[in-house]
Amino acid sequence: MAHTHPYPEPALQEVIDRNRTARQLITAFSSTTLTLADIWQHVTTALDDTLTLAAQITSLHAELSRVHRQRADIIAAARATLAAHHDGEADPLFYLRDELTAQHADEARRGEGG
């Protein structure tokens, strides 16, 4: 079953580009309407939040992709184990042990421990 997302994937580069354009407009507006400088500062702060969120989304997307890959690898190892058991192999659990060892080593390399 395919995994569907309830929300479309954001085009983060487009978001960042629009953010840059908005900042340029704010710079222009704030220099011509000094009485609104405080208001423009609030808008600039909100734009800073957008960039922070874009960075967090990028990081979370990478982590989610890694977890999906790990899950697929575990499922493949489980299927291989069941097939090996069905075929009467001497050590059908080898496939699961091997995959779990590989994932543990990957976590250790990333410093997750566990």
Rank of each mutant, 00 (worst) to 15 (best):
A108Q: 12
V15H: 10
T50L: 14
P10S: 08
D48M: 03
Q103K: 04
G113W: 07
Q13M: 14
R69H: 07
L64V: 11
D38K: 05
D91Y: 13
L96D: 02
H86N: 15
Q41P: 00
L34K: 09
A83I: 13
A108R: 08
Q70V: 01
Q103F: 03
A102T: 11
A108I: 03
T21E: 15
H85Y: 15
A78P: 00
E14D: 12
S59Q: 15
L36A: 12
A84D: 11
S30R: 08
E63L: 08
A102W: 05
A28F: 02
D106Y: 03
M1P: 04
H61I: 04
S30I: 00
L53H: 11
L96R: 07
I75Q: 15
H3Y: 10
A11I: 13
H61E: 14
Q56S: 09
G114M: 10
V43L: 09
H3K: 09
H104W: 14
D106K: 02
H61M: 08
G114L: 15
L96N: 06
A80M: 06
A108W: 01
A77Y: 05
A84F: 08
I26E: 04
H86F: 14
L36F: 02
S65G: 11
E9Q: 14
A54I: 00
D48V: 01
L64M: 10
H68S: 07
S31I: 06
D106F: 01
Q24F: 03
A37F: 01
Y7S: 13
E89K: 15
G111Y: 03
H61T: 15
A22R: 04
R23M: 09
G111E: 00
R97T: 08
L82E: 11
A105L: 06
A105N: 09
L36W: 05
Q56Y: 09
H85A: 15
I75V: 15
R79T: 08
T101W: 08
D106V: 01
A102N: 07
G111T: 00
R66S: 12
R71C: 00
A2S: 12
L64I: 10
D91W: 13
A84L: 04
I75W: 02
H86L: 12
L100C: 06
H3W: 12
Y95V: 00
H86K: 15
A90P: 14
E89T: 10
A62T: 04
P8H: 07
G88V: 03
F94K: 12
R110C: 02
A102R: 14
A83G: 03
Q24Y: 05
L82R: 15
D106I: 00
P8N: 08
A2I: 14
A55H: 08
L51Q: 13
G113F: 04
E14N: 15
I39V: 12
T58W: 01
D49L: 11
T35M: 06
I74W: 01
F94G: 09
A84E: 03
I16M: 10
T33W: 13
E107P: 01
E9D: 10
S30E: 13
Q70H: 07
I57P: 01
F29M: 11
F29A: 11
R79H: 10
A62F: 00
A102P: 05
L34N: 05
A84C: 09
S59L: 13
T27G: 12
I26Q: 03
R71T: 05
H68L: 05
A46H: 07
E112T: 06
H85K: 15
A76S: 10
D98R: 13
S65D: 09
E14S: 12
L34M: 03
